[in-house]
Simulated scan of single mutants.
Amino acid sequence: MKANRMEAFSDGVLAIIITIMVLELKVPEGHSWSSLVGLVPKFLSYAVSFVYVGIYWNNHHHLLHTVRTINGKLMWINLLLLFSLSLIPFSTAWIGESNFSATPAALYGIVLLLAAVSYMRLQYEILKQHSSDSDFVVVMGRDVKGKLSMLLYLISIIVAYLNSWVSCLIFVLVAVIWFVPDRRIERVLRNKS
């Protein structure tokens, strides 16, 4: 099987995830600007989650350009990543509905940590297809942003019970770190052509 089938399936799942998230934003009963005030926490959680799904979509797209062969193990790891990401709409709705309370914030951090670990595992499995001195292995092996993100998610889960707002700021910080797409793969592909 070619990587484009797995990428197309993943793109479809990510599109559905975003659709589910936006459907959680219910229209207010009032007809004035003030009636939107109650939606601010829900919209903020949606906006951050939208950015996260976009970041995963972008990096997943680049990562799949390095795949040499698709096998069952790779497909299952990709499904684990998609499963993790499919939990984002639930955790997004809960954290927005609860006005960023401690347990929903901790769950949001757990979901993001699970997605990060799954992505790291997918990346590792794909890199195993290349020789250890390959340009891809060299540049991807230094995944400082990925490792830092997982550490920050762990911190945010603990901090959620001390101050859920600080926990949420950590989520935003990680999103800002990743907002600029990971250019490592692009550079290697550009150098090869």
Rank of each mutant, 00 (worst) to 15 (best):
A115C: 07
R183W: 10
G12C: 02
H60D: 01
L114S: 13
H65Y: 11
S101R: 09
L14N: 02
V139N: 04
L113R: 00
L173S: 10
R187D: 13
V40H: 06
F83M: 12
L173I: 15
R183V: 15
V117A: 06
V51Q: 07
I157T: 04
N78C: 06
A93M: 11
V51E: 07
V137L: 09
A106M: 11
V51A: 15
L87P: 04
K2C: 10
M75T: 12
M21F: 05
H62D: 11
L151V: 15
S164Y: 04
V159A: 04
M120D: 14
S131L: 11
A106Y: 05
S35L: 12
N71D: 14
K147V: 15
H31E: 15
S10A: 11
S132M: 13
I95K: 03
H31K: 14
F9R: 09
N59S: 14
G96A: 09
L154M: 13
F100S: 07
D135C: 05
L152K: 03
D143G: 07
G12L: 02
G38P: 01
F90D: 00
F136L: 02
L162C: 07
W178K: 05
D133T: 10
S35Y: 11
R142I: 07
L63P: 00
I70D: 00
V180C: 10
V137I: 07
F9Y: 15
W76E: 03
N78V: 08
K73Y: 14
Y153E: 04
S164N: 04
L151T: 13
H130D: 09
L173W: 09
V22M: 07
F9A: 08
E29L: 14
S10R: 03
N71I: 00
A105G: 05
R187A: 14
W178V: 04
E24M: 08
H60Y: 05
P41G: 04
E29F: 12
V51G: 08
L154C: 15
V117L: 11
G30E: 06
E97M: 08
Q123P: 04
I126G: 00
N59I: 13
V139M: 04
S156C: 13
E125S: 13
P89F: 05
V117W: 01
F9L: 15
G12H: 03
R187G: 08
G96M: 09
S131V: 06
L44A: 13
S86Y: 10
W33I: 15
T92V: 07
I18P: 00
R184N: 07
V159C: 03
V13Y: 07
Y161R: 00
S134P: 05
G12Y: 01
N71A: 02
H31Y: 13
R68D: 08
W178D: 08
V137T: 09
E24R: 08
S167M: 01
S164E: 06
V172L: 06
N71V: 01
